[in-house]
């Protein structure tokens, strides 16, 4: 590591002052912080390495295709397990969560940035942040004891009138379903998307907004023509961060899904499972192969969330460079 900025600024002018030699405290300190910084990279690599190390023996023992198999019986002999159904569950719950949360989150973000009075915005922005601080296990508990009741009623209603749609078919029981899990997830990703988009909306250059208003635009037209285009990249990034959170959420889904492995479009019948929930629920009775199988599924989850998060960060970094160079 060559580092131009490490030396204390040398006194200029006149002759060279005699340099006091410490016991290399500077070197020790710099190396220490460098090691701490490098640790982050080491951890990322280590996660991959150790997960692979534990997953490979289980994958070798698997008698089914890990990608396409829907069942998860790693503890029986011979072990049969695959990620298809649980990955499907992760996907479905995340999609439901985003479909519900994104419009609401953007609405709240716009409300806080461009509609509410400043003091109101501060207070309620704080409330939304508190929503983010509530542990996921509490949302899970709330989801399967309280929230399940309106969701079940809603599911039965949907089934009564819309059972001709594949999503709302089936003949019950309803409640502990993809819909419940997805809605609980929606509540959990809401604050993430809200706070980031709100920040982006607040950064919209005031001249842009005033230009729109002075041309006679209504407030909505101003938002549509100046705020939304300016914030588009940031909003996309915030949605992807929300997606990353939704994909990896464990305990809330472990408590609200029905723990049945199946690939189905039906989102209201009891059932469903996800990669993360499967790990939390299946870990207790897992043997050695079972543990390796769960770790293998965790590795897949890690890879997916890593890609999603990296994509989101690349968007944010690009945008930051763009806005900083524009400023």
């Amino acid at each position: 590591m060559s580092d131009p900025g490490v030396d204390t600024p040398a006194p200029s002018g006149g002759g060279q002052l005699p340099r006091r030699k410490g016991f290399g405290a500077e070197t020790v300190f710099r190396t220490g912080t460098l090691a701490a910084g490098t640790l982050v990279l080491v951890i990322i690599v280590a996660i991959t390495a150790f997960l692979i190390n534990e997953a490979v023996p289980a994958l070798r023992a698997d008698t089914a295709n890990f990608i396409t198999e829907t069942e998860w019986f790693p503890n029986q002999t011979p072990p049969v397990f695959g990620i298809a159904a649980i990955a499907w569950g992760t996907l479905v719950t995340s999609v439901i969560a985003l479909v519900v949360a994104v419009p609401i989150a953007l609405g709240i973000a716009l409300y806080l940035s461009h509609y509410a009075h400043r003091r109101v915005a501060t207070t309620f922005g704080f409330l939304i942040d508190l929503l983010a601080a509530v542990p996921s296990v509490v949302f899970g508990l709330w989801g399967f004891t309280v929230f399940i009741r309106p969701v079940r009623t809603f599911s039965i209603w949907l089934n009564d009138y819309f059972s001709w749609l594949p999503f709302f078919g089936g003949d019950g029981p309803f409640g502990r379903s993809f819909l419940l899990g997805g809605l609980v997830l929606a509540i959990m990703v809401l604050p993430i998307i809200t706070s980031l988009s709100r920040e982006v909306f607040l950064q919209t250059p005031v001249p842009d907004q005033e230009a729109a208003l002075s041309l006679g635009a209504t407030r909505w037209e101003m938002i549509r023509t100046s705020v939304l285009p300016y914030g588009r990249a940031g909003v996309i990034a915030s949605i992807m961060l929300g997606l990353g959170r939704a994909l990896g959420e464990t305990i809330a889904l472990a408590l609200t899904l029905g723990f049945i492995n199946e690939i189905t479009f039906n989102i209201i019948e009891n059932g469903g499972n996800s990669i993360a929930a499967n790990i939390a629920n299946g870990f207790g009775e897992a043997g050695e192969i079972g543990r390796g199988a769960l770790i293998a599924s965790g590795l897949v989850l890690f890879a997916i969330t890593l890609v999603v998060n990296m994509a989101a960060r690349v968007i944010i970094y690009r945008r930051r460079e763009f806005t900083e160079s524009a400023a």
Partner: peptide, 21 residues
């Protein structure tokens, strides 16, 4: 960059990492 990416690591993956390590 990876500090930012690491904020998005699911908690269950962190658990699995320490489990296998």
């Amino acid at each position: 960059f990876f500090v930012d990416v690491m904020t998005g690591i699911p908690s269950i993956v962190a658990g699995l990492f320490i489990l296998s390590f």
